[in-house]
Design a protein around this nucleic acid. Structure first.
Lengths: 336, 336
DNA sequence: TTGAAAGCGGTACCAT
DNA sequence: ATGGTACCGCTTTCAA
């Protein structure tokens, strides 16, 4: 059933039906009611494809994130959930595109076939070909994360440098002198993954500032890798008394490694880092950490994108968040 | 740039371009090459909206799941991830719809506006108005989960009754006589959420069969609720020596509650249940559990849907999975 | 082997 | 206040 059918039954023209429904032109109260009645009776809804073709807008936004391979981190998934809900609140649908690079078929479809009005990019790298590609095209998009030269772009990001530094200072203030850094997998670091780089950077600088002895590690995104990583840490320097991690998926494994090594948290060993609070609260003792406000970030990204879609010439805006460290139960004075 | 532009530059008609690209009609090798060259030069890709309008297919599938409110469980999110990737492998895009009931705007859009060719439904209830709605319309869909009368439908599900029963038998075999059941939140149970119902059912029947003393609890989807729930369990019956849970989000809290109560797992208390293996491996000691093969289920759902889309008259098919219990480290003999 | 043209289902301009 | 119609960009039938 199409708009012509409605027009016929209501005894008016197709354009009148269109206007009655969109309100873009005054329609006499009488005919409007008649049309509405037919519409209700038949449960008519205009075809999204036809409408998109006619007015050049799809009312859909694309959400681009790398294929997980094995599994997604909790943080990624929190982003997805919050983006979808925020978009629904604005009557936008969300099309998912598992694309890590701009050559992915799904990414090409999204843009080339004009399936979406704008895009939100997740898992940003410092040099990100997807972001560059979109910028070059002038395609409306917002990044969750911050590229190396993002000052003039649209994004919502976390100041990972500051967050990692804050974790170091927290441990240093508690008297820890020998600490480790547990990063995301080496492959992500090498490919220029933003949080891994900036986090490592912030950790290293802050530790140097405080004159700490440090070791840094990459670690797979799973508990088994976390456990193995912790064993290496204690093997490499048994005097280590604390660690900072960005790797929430490994967190459970890190704790398990500590337990196996007979180190009590937080009495013998302090753990902190940057993770979504869902994970911070899952482990025992609960993790003192800079909580990633994933839900808020997703919402902000949608708001930014909707704003940008509404005013194509608006100057770039962004949100750079620095959530505070939530004191929970996983850190304590060194050598207590 | 559109197909007309390509036609002009290649010196052929629009239909020839269309056929050259789709291969639905023979085109002389010579013109085909000429067209392809223009296409490559200009990076032409046909508009998805126009194509959808013309041939009535969107090459998009809808993924319907309830809005999270607070946050998604790991299992839900694993489903989403695997569905998206499986769909991408078949060159389908995935449109997300956060809809718990068939009156949700987003759900209406998906169907009414014909945005998708088919749909995958998550978080099935025994009586599910979304599933009924789709069935009535004859709209191609596949459920992840099994309604009360699903025998003749398209779905991929877990035999929660059998899984919960298996957990009970596992504990009973180890000599446990007084055990508890930690279900999903009461609101989900009341609304007829499938896994909560069938799981409770399987637990209750199996426990009766084995003559066990049981108590059943509903528990919020978060660590704090898990901890509170465990306190209630030990308060209600301090002699309880084991529990079965479907609530992965509460798992960390259950463990914490046990630790606080001074019960060592698995020496003093055994824990088991039905959860995604990511969670089972995160906690220490790792959870002996029936692992929910979320990734496989998402893939199967997509396969089923693609099959159904290809052959509209195909008879309903389904997969009812009964994953085995993975023995890890959270259960042990009673009173050891 | 190729072209012309009629849809697909809307929107919006130009008339009346 | 309403109607007629061109157009959005592609697919597919019909003709040549």
């Amino acid at each position: 059933m199409n708009i012509g059918e409605i027009a016929r039954r209501a005894g008016v023209s197709r354009s009148t039906v269109s206007y009655a429904l969109s309100g873009k032109r005054p329609v006499s109260e009488d005919t409007r009611r008649r049309i509405q009645q037919v519409v209700d009776e038949l449960g008519y809804q205009p075809s999204a494809s036809a409408r998109a073709l006619a007015n050049g807008r799809t009312s859909t936004i694309g959400l681009v994130f790398p294929p997980a391979g094995n599994h997604y981190t909790g943080m990624q998934l929190d982003f997805i959930g919050s983006v979808v809900e925020a978009a629904a609140a604005c009557d936008y649908d969300v099309l998912l595109s598992p694309s890590g690079v701009d050559s992915d078929r799904s990414f090409q479809r999204l843009l080339g076939e004009r399936r979406v009005d704008g895009a939100i990019l997740m898992e940003i790298r410092l040099e990100d070909d997807r972001a560059d590609h979109l910028a070059r095209l002038g395609f409306p998009s917002v990044a969750i994360g911050r590229t190396a030269h993002a000052e003039d772009g649209w994004f919502v990001g976390l100041d990972h440098t500051a967050l990692a530094a804050a974790c170091v200072h927290h441990l240093a203030d508690l008297g820890h002198r020998r600490i480790a850094f547990v990063n995301r997998p080496e492959q992500l670091l090498r490919s220029g993954y933003e949080s891994a780089h900036r986090g490592l950077d912030g950790f290293t600088k802050a530790a140097a500032e405080r004159g700490l002895t440090v070791r840094t590690y990459c670690c797979g995104d799973d508990p088994a890798s976390g456990q193995a990583c912790l064993e290496r840490i204690l093997h490499d320097d048994p005097a280590t008394t604390g660690l900072v991690t960005l790797n929430e998926a490994a967190l459970g494994g890190l704790y398990r490694g500590l337990a196996h090594a007979g180190r009590h948290v937080p009495r013998d060993f302090s753990v902190t880092g940057v993770v979504a609070n869902r994970w911070a609260e899952t482990v025992t003792p609960q993790l003192t950490a800079a909580d990633v406000p994933a839900a808020e970030m997703g919402r902000l990204a949608v708001d930014l994108l909707v704003e940008r879609l509404g005013r194509p010439e608006a100057p770039p805006r962004h949100h750079l968040l620095v959530p505070p460290i939530s004191l929970r139960a996983s850190t304590g004075p060194a050598g207590a």
